[in-house]
């Protein structure tokens, strides 16, 4: 990735910049950035981050711009996963009023970072989104609508559902994803086309039921969440999304495939040992016999 160096560029004066006061959207962003909400957020956005000093600011900018344009109270949670670069410092130095940085001394894996972030979230609806903005935030409403309407408890972005648009993904990764998808279907009976897309939204109730019992800290935590959700009677809807391959992805085909397969066994074992039992109670409107 490129470093941005402006040290030798003469900076024009503010007057010379010819800045405008900006649109209403820009003003909303500036208010959000400088003023505490004063009310509980309706929406929480959790970004897990491990050594994301190069990518985190543009992603925060895109998410903040879009969420502020919606006009609902929202908070941002950066769940740093033991970064060894300046990710935490860079975000902290922004001084954003409605942003929380969660820190941990050691790198636990994406699942751990998402869990810590979601458990700190206060919103009625909780989105987790990858730090690379691979799934553009403009699609947030597609996930929120079915959950807000009560049609679903969880909405998951899908790169494999009908209507999805995947841009830049290599043929090798496509084949790998397809293979793992078949394994998931056969091994877990889940009908989802894509369990791994880093763009998922949970109702408050669903998050409160799933994350306390979720155990896998690594790459396969999404699958575990969907498995527990399935066992718990939570309704999951898959939403086709536009997705861009992002240079610098931390996903490594061979290594992560081995881990994924290993985690499949762990999930089955955890289930057999009753470790997900706490989440398996009926949803509102259901009875034990449903």
């Amino acid at each position: 990735m490129n470093k941005i160096d402006t040290a030798h560029a003469p900076a024009p004066t503010a007057e010379a910049l010819g800045l405008t006061s900006g649109s209403e959207e820009l003003e909303r962003y500036r208010t959000w950035a400088t003023t505490s909400l004063g009310v509980d957020p309706v929406i929480s956005v959790v970004i897990p981050a491990f050594n994301e000093e190069e990518r985190i600011l543009p992603t925060i900018g895109a998410i903040a711009s879009h969420l502020c344009s919606r006009g609902e109270p929202w908070e941002l949670i950066i769940s740093d996963d033991g970064s060894t670069d300046r990710t935490r410092e860079i975000v902290g130095e922004l001084g954003l009023a409605n942003t929380t940085v969660i820190e941990t001394a050691v790198n636990t894996g994406k699942g751990g970072a998402v869990r810590r972030g979601v458990q700190a979230a206060r919103g009625h609806y909780i989105l987790f989104a990858d730090a690379d903005q691979a799934t553009p935030i403009e699609q947030f409403g597609l996930l929120l609508d079915p959950v807000r309407s009560g049609e679903a408890d969880i909405a998951v972005g899908s790169r494999a559902a009908t209507g999805a648009d995947v841009i830049g993904k290599s043929r090798g990764r496509r084949l790998l994803s397809e293979g793992l998808r078949h394994i998931v279907r056969i091994g877990f009976g889940l009908s989802h086309h894509d369990t791994q897309c880093g763009f998922k939204l949970f109702s408050r109730d669903a998050a409160d039921r799933l994350f306390p019992v979720q155990r896998i800290n690594g790459f396969s935590f999404d699958l575990e969440l969907l498995f527990i959700a399935s066992r718990s009677g939570l309704r999951v809807t898959e939403v086709a999304v536009r997705w861009f391959d992002s240079p610098g992805s931390t996903v490594q085909g061979g290594r992560d495939t081995v881990r994924f397969l290993r985690d499949l066994g762990r999930i089955r074992l955890n289930d057999a040992l009753g470790r997900y039992g706490g989440a398996c109670r009926p949803t509102a409107g259901q009875t034990e016999g449903d």
Binding site: L17, T20, G61, A62
Partner: peptide, 21 residues
């Protein structure tokens, strides 16, 4: 655009570039 403008502000690059309406 607003997202680009916010990104420029967060990275402090709005102070390095001339930006016109």
């Amino acid at each position: 655009s607003t997202p680009v403008r916010v990104i420029l502000e967060l990275t402090a690059l709005d102070r390095a570039f001339v930006i016109r309406d």
